[in-house]
Design a binder for these strands. Structure first.
Lengths: 202, 202
DNA sequence: ACGGGGTGCAAGCAACCACTTGCTTGCACA
DNA sequence: TGTGCAAGCAAGTGGTTGCTTGCACCCCGT
């Protein structure tokens, strides 16, 4: 049972770095410290191994849901954005590779796009609740606003690896900065900006 | 001279779809309608062909610069955002594949990241001019604001292929929606929203 | 003591890969 | 009519890939 897990982890690592075409069975086996034949004995063929490695890796979810009844949009959105950003950062290499191979592997895309799809749906529902409660401006297109916040988080998480010099502020502060701008954008900033540390005035 | 261009275009097409490992010389030659040997006679080896195909494709630039002296932020940002968005959309497949291969091809990344780098720098300089002219709020972090708008455009252009159901509004309207939210975010919306067609009140 | 499942090793298979060689064809130009 | 160049064709180079076969090992439960 241990060899199996070592193979799955190694397959994921190699796939993230080289893609499915570059992830050769020899290299995966070497990375796992196992003989190549053992790989075939456990998974039958390369595709089955990669499939299981990728789909089983996507199970981990941020699990920081937005509340059903909004109370403090700033705090709630910040916690959610941080979890989303961290999740994307954690899977950045896998996301990059999966995106690059979506044309030749449409079903993997469906699995890989599940997280952002859920995140978008969740945030949009939250924004509609916010709108219903009068906690943000009425005319805002919740679809576009949702795309804007999730898009900022996504692009930040991806861009930090590719254009690091364009992100001078540390990773931990990024979600806060986008949430602050976002609150202004949707007209949900009764307390313009927290001038100093301290609990929110509720 | 015609065979050469056909090979370059075919190489770019196949690379966008399959990546460098999947873009075999046989397939490129077949796609170009040329014998495989001709490929080697023209470019020597596969890497040289792919290199030239990719780098020569990135030459086309949006060329819709932001003005040195801001006059109408809404109109200027909208035109710029539209050009950026269209540029990313046009190269979406190439960007996706390049991102997926950045680990094994760091120099291609440098070439591929040149456009977004320039765009970010340009927008940030514009925002600082806006701030200097008092046309937007003073406390805004221009780095984060820049990342937010370019990130929204980037994620939209990428996401429309991967999660189309999350983008119900048509592609042509997307930049306008993000720019409108962005103007609110940075406090640069003297005219809250253009209620109907007509020239800006200047 | 013994049998069996999980593993390793050596070797090899056909298919595909980038790339080369030797020769032929067609066309332009002198 | 002769020469040179671009392109095609058939064949083959050495290397890699996914995957298989056969056999030895070694630990573990009975």
């Amino acid at each position: 049972m241990e060899v199996r897990n070592k193979l799955l982890q190694a397959a994921l690592r190699v796939f993230e770095e080289c893609g499915s075409r570059g992830a050769t069975t020899r290299r995966i086996a070497a990375e796992a410290g196992v003989n190549e034949i053992t790989l075939f004995r456990h998974f039958g063929n390369k595709a089955a191994l990669l499939n299981e490695a990728i789909s089983s890796s996507g199970v981990l979810r941020p699990a920081a849901p937005l509340p059903r009844e909004p109370r403090n949009p700033r705090a709630e959105l910040l916690a959610w954005a941080r979890a989303q950003h961290a999740g994307i950062r954690h899977n950045a290499a896998l996301i990059r590779t999966s995106m690059g191979e979506m044309e030749g592997n449409p079903e993997m895309l469906r699995c890989s796009a599940e997280n952002p799809r859920r995140a978008n749906t969740e945030l949009q529902a939250y924004l509609e609740r916010l709108q219903g409660a009068g906690l943000m401006r009425a005319g805002v297109d919740t679809y576009a606003a949702t795309a804007m916040l999730t898009g900022s988080l996504f692009a930040d998480a991806m861009g930090r690896d590719m254009i690091p010099e364009r992100y001078p502020y540390p990773e931990a502060e990024a979600p806060g900065k986008y949430v602050e701008l976002f609150l202004r954008a949707i007209g949900a900033d009764p307390d313009p900006a927290p001038p100093a540390a301290g609990t929110a005035p509720d």
